[in-house]
Simulated scan of single mutants.
Amino acid sequence: MSSWHSFSDEDWTFNPGSGSLFGHGGGIGDFATSYAVDTSLGTMLNGRVSAEIRLTSPSGTGAGLVCRADLGWTFVAFHTMSPNPVDHTAVARFSVLQEGVLVPVAQLPEPITLSRGYNHFSLEFYSGRMRGEIRTGKHEYELLATCPHVPFAGHVGLVKFYGATMVGRSVTAERTLMPFVTSTVLERTRRRQDFAYDVFLCHATADAPEVERLGERLRERGIRCWLDSGEIQFGDRLTQKIQEGLRASRFVLPCISPNFPKSIWAQAEYGYVLNAELGGDASRTVVPLMLADAVLQQIPELLQEVRRVNTRNQVEFEEFIAFLLSH
């Protein structure tokens, strides 16, 4: 636990044996705030952090997780807050601390009741989108927010308020390359029957033979594919058929190759869905597929940070097929 950094040794104690962090007393500002971050992971712009958190006195205190934290009192926090010492309920909030000033951003309308044992907190952050979740054993709470206030990479860790005494354990964190999927989106995306096709294969004309073989591999595994060679007949209007295929497909798979950057049609196809996705329509998703001769430099700039699939890696390709079938 020597990688953890706090701003007052009197506020936090790290126990390497148990892997736990103890927060006790201290804090600055009107909310007596104190936080500790794990510097071993470096800084993250997009990612996820989770922990088991126990407040020794759930009433009148607060605690949670931070992301994009620097070492100078700036971070985004997903946390509970219970300023009334006689009330056994709390509120769940997203807040931003900038140079020591705490600003609430969003709050769950319903009050929450924390367990007297450990409660599971998780915080996902991607661009300006935030998702926080608390599981108490009896209840699950979810809060979504747009929080563009801290647009730079930072550390992840734990935070406490009002001089709270707390224990944090099982802290995990990971970087992500794809936007998180909220429960609301999952309700919409898991209905496979809403789409006639699982995937739309978007490719350069020169790669047609390789992509057709790829389509056969997918169909053999039960994946429903839209591929122009089988869907567009003589006399069909190209634009209309492509638009119909895009609307009817759950995932759009740009097939990356040396030929892909030169294909105007391919760029237009994935761009149609990518623009909708960036605008908040998560019903369809773009996932780049790396063909046999593809290199990273051939991935379009807007897809550079999107998680991709290497068709030459059999293990990764099998995992992707399992992902498609599960969604």
Rank of each mutant, 00 (worst) to 15 (best):
G100D: 05
V96H: 00
V159W: 05
L177I: 00
F152K: 09
R135P: 00
P85M: 06
S34Q: 10
E52C: 01
A90G: 12
R68P: 01
P58K: 12
R129T: 03
S40G: 07
A32W: 13
K138M: 12
V105K: 04
S82A: 15
A77K: 01
W73N: 13
G163H: 14
V66R: 04
S82E: 08
S127W: 03
S59Y: 08
T89P: 04
P104F: 01
G163W: 10
R68C: 01
G163A: 15
C147F: 02
G117M: 08
H149W: 05
R48C: 04
S127L: 10
K160W: 06
L97H: 02
G42T: 02
A90Q: 13
A153V: 02
R116H: 15
H155A: 05
R54P: 02
V101W: 03
F75E: 04
F125S: 06
V101I: 14
V156K: 00
D38I: 04
A90C: 15
N84S: 14
V171H: 03
F78D: 04
T89H: 13
T39F: 03
A90V: 13
F125R: 04
S122D: 14
T146K: 10
T113F: 08
G154N: 03
H149I: 00
T61W: 01
T89Q: 15
V167Q: 03
P83M: 12
G128H: 13
S127K: 12
E110G: 05
T146N: 14
V66W: 01
T146L: 11
T113N: 09
F121L: 09
S115N: 15
A63T: 10
R129V: 02
A69D: 06
H120Q: 13
C147A: 09
L97D: 07
F125L: 08
G168D: 00
S82Y: 00
L102A: 11
A106H: 03
F161I: 09
H88M: 14
Y162A: 13
F125E: 01
G117L: 09
Y162I: 12
T74P: 00
L143F: 09
H120T: 12
W73K: 12
T61V: 12
A164S: 15
L114E: 00
Y118R: 06
F121S: 03
T146I: 12
K160Q: 12
E110A: 15
G128M: 08
T56M: 10
L71T: 14
T33M: 13
Y35L: 14
H79Q: 14
F125Q: 06
T165Y: 10
V150E: 01
R93V: 05
G157Y: 01
A173N: 02
V76K: 01
P85V: 12
S34G: 15
